[in-house]
Amino acid sequence: MAKQGVDPDELTQPFWDAANEQRLVIQNCVDCDRLQHPPSNTCRDCDDGGALEWKQVSGRGTIYNYGVVHDCPVRLLQEDQPFNLAVIMLDDDPGIQMYSHLPGVPVDDVPVGAAVEVIFEPSANGQLVPEWRVIDG
């Protein structure tokens, strides 16, 4: 599925740069050593807003949940309707979620709980975007 392009901004430049190198990085608080996603400018758990670093994660996860999108607000995705939209939980920290269209998985036939691994797919402007595929077997 062709996604809209991405224009990295100051906050997310490291995330998108890493994606272009086919690496998945997630924000981590140096003070409380806790991952957070989506990224923000300060740690959401430390009262004084702990300092943040970008930490490379394994790129393994499981399918936590999914829905099937039939009426999508994003124009570019409308030609692919209906499509799966799943939430992946990272093995590194099952509290951290990422979205996936689950390329290759039939619509509404999603194996909840299955193991997945990150892949990187080009978006409309060539920026690589993390996606997830089911690990066979």
Binding site: G5, D7, D9, P38, G67, L85
Partner: peptide, 27 residues
Amino acid sequence: ANAGAALPGTPAITQLWGGPASYSTAL
């Protein structure tokens, strides 16, 4: 933004996948 060719990096992390408003509740 939903009609645009590209999204800024921060909203892209949540919006590139195109979940409608009721998606979270549906899940």
